Simulated scan of single mutants.
Amino acid sequence: MTTITPTIDEPRPTAKPVLGAPAGRAELVTIRLFLIIPFLALLAVVPAVWGWGIGWADVAVGAGFYVVSALGITVGYHRYFTHGAFKANRALRVALAVAGGLAAQGSVITWVADHRRHHAFSDREGDPHSPWLFGTSAAALAKGFWHAHMGWLFGTDRTNVDRFAPDLAADADIRAVDRLFPLWVLISVGMPGVLVALITWSWWGLLTGFLWAGLARVAFLHHITWSVNSICHMVGDRPFASRDKSANFWPLAILSMGESWHNLHHADPTSARHGVRRGQLDISARVIWIFEKFGWARNVRWPDERRLARLTVAPTE
């Protein structure tokens, strides 16, 4: 068999660009409205109805949607689709994509592309949401915090899916879920009001369920997720060696379902567990463990003690 060796004169394949086509005006208006409206609802309903306008049904339905949509992001969009921390059967794969859509943080393919780009350029030029892109002065860090937390979402840059998420773009099931993202958002915002109305059998329940368990819950989860991008790259401890400023911030551990154990995640991105030390509660890892026990997940990348030892930063004198 003859081996053909390429010569230096032959063209080499060029890397696909980091960015895709910029967002259009209609897309930007839609995104900005949906970022702002739930937040304004959260600001409005707290002083308006606190103590009398919220009932147990609002809390219960809101908590249920919060857990499902948050796990859709942490277990689904993040640990499974972005990093391949485990393999899932088809039903679980589709369910995780739908659950992530209920968080209203973007369709699964674009979310994954953005996050893979974040890891490729973490805390340096090219990272879509690093708080360290503008310098280290107080003013620069304040600007960086805003940019990392939510400012980057108002920009026109769009991550190139062909470069960062071609595997998902080629999956027919995931493309179908991705196209239906507006439906998942509509269900996430509208269904809680319907459920509360049915539970309380009142029109008032429809309103409070929509405001509290719908809009306000979406806004709250938005800011928990965005805090991992901002706070967890600025404040906290860094026991593991990574190439960036990722840090652990324990106050967010429960609400973020374990995502705020962020330092180990950036040191070992494919690990299914982020909270690996005693007392580091990681709800997402426990859910993955349950999926594995039921046979829905396999080939789970659980932390390896020897690898953790190699990643641990030696204490300074």
Rank of each mutant, 00 (worst) to 15 (best):
A120R: 00
D167F: 04
D123E: 11
P131D: 03
P182R: 04
D171Q: 01
L153G: 06
L183Y: 11
D173N: 09
L133C: 06
S137W: 04
D173V: 08
A165W: 08
A142P: 00
L206G: 06
G126W: 14
D167V: 05
G190K: 05
S130K: 05
L186I: 08
G135M: 01
A197T: 14
F164A: 05
V196D: 10
P192D: 12
V177Q: 01
A165R: 06
D162W: 03
G151R: 02
G135H: 00
M191K: 02
A170Q: 07
G135S: 06
R179P: 02
M191N: 03
L168Y: 08
S122D: 08
L186S: 08
G209H: 01
A140M: 04
H147Y: 15
D178Y: 06
T136C: 01
A140S: 14
A169P: 03
A169D: 14
S202T: 13
H129A: 06
R158S: 12
R124K: 12
W204L: 13
S202Q: 06
R158F: 10
H147Q: 13
D171P: 09
L186R: 07
G151H: 05
E125L: 09
A139F: 03
P131G: 05
W201D: 15
D173W: 08
L141E: 08
D162Y: 02
G135L: 00
G205K: 06
S122N: 13
A176C: 01
W132T: 00
I199F: 13
L180M: 15
D173Y: 04
K143H: 09
A197M: 15
A148Y: 12
G126I: 11
R179D: 11
V196L: 10
M191S: 14
S202G: 07
W152N: 11
M191F: 14
V185N: 00
L195V: 14
A172I: 08
A138V: 10
H129Q: 12
W146Q: 04
A140R: 01
P182S: 07
A148H: 04
S130I: 06
L168R: 03
A176K: 15
L153T: 13
M191V: 15
A140G: 07
V196I: 06
R179H: 12
F164N: 01
A139W: 03
H129S: 08
G155Q: 11
D171W: 05
L195H: 09
L180W: 12
D178R: 12
T208G: 00
F181N: 05
R158V: 13
R175T: 11
H147S: 11
I187C: 02
D127K: 02
M150R: 02
F164C: 04
M150F: 15
P182Q: 07
I174S: 11
M150T: 13
S122E: 10
A169T: 04
V194W: 15
D162R: 10
G126Q: 07
T159S: 15
G190Q: 06
V196K: 03
V161Y: 07
P166G: 05
A176L: 09
G155C: 07
D178M: 10
W132N: 11
F164E: 12
S122G: 11
R124A: 04
P131A: 07
W203F: 13
R163A: 12
L207F: 11
L183W: 14
V177N: 09
L141Q: 14
A148T: 13
P128G: 01
T156I: 07
L207G: 09
W201L: 15
S137C: 05
F164I: 03
L153M: 15
A165H: 07
T136L: 00
A197V: 12
